[in-house]
Design a protein around this nucleic acid. Structure first.
Length: 152
DNA sequence: GCCAACGTTGGC
DNA sequence: GCCAACGTTGGC
């Protein structure tokens, strides 16, 4: 089973929102590298949910892939913020996966903490200027984070 | 809210 | 196919 980290801005969609809804289409991915990771996700893969653009960016919880990549309908919706006029219905450019809520991490594992963890030394997440919204997580990275938290 | 870093677009 | 201009991300 592979692991991933998904960034979200909690002001737009938070882990609490995911918990309240139970599951959610992870739409709006408009970056080719992130999309290619989306397409590698398999049903059952577990993911870290990460809050970005907040005072303390951090891994705040866990989710699970419940539906593998399929076309993101917002790309065809002119009213959507994520509309892409160049994407053709017969060759959709952008995909989404459905994510189910699993748990909150207690305490959250902050970016500052991740930077101090040797397991994360090579992870793009801790590199300056990183803008990838989906980051692959190795087994040792996954285990190192879980060792620091209680799942609630 | 600022702005560095980065990805994408489009003129040539 | 280069690269300047532009738009966006995300830490701070």
């Amino acid at each position: 089973m592979a692991h991933w980290l998904l960034k979200t801005e909690p002001e737009a969609f938070s882990l609490d929102d995911l918990k309240a809804r139970g599951q959610e289409p992870w739409d709006g991915i408009r970056n080719y590298q992130a999309r290619n990771f989306l397409r590698q996700m398999r049903r059952g893969d577990e993911v870290f949910i990460y809050h970005s653009r907040v005072a303390t960016p951090a891994i705040v919880g866990l989710g699970r892939i419940v539906t593998e990549a399929h076309p993101d309908p917002t790309q065809f919706d002119p009213q959507s913020h994520y509309y892409d006029a160049a994407s053709r219905p017969d060759a959709p450019r952008w995909d989404l996966v459905d994510i189910a809520y699993l748990a909150h991490c207690q305490p959250p594992v902050s970016l500052e903490t991740l930077r101090e963890m040797p397991e994360f030394a090579d992870n793009p997440l801790v590199r300056k200027g990183n803008r990838l919204s989906i980051v692959p997580i190795s087994e040792s990275e996954w285990q190192a984070v879980l060792a620091r938290v209680t799942l609630v």
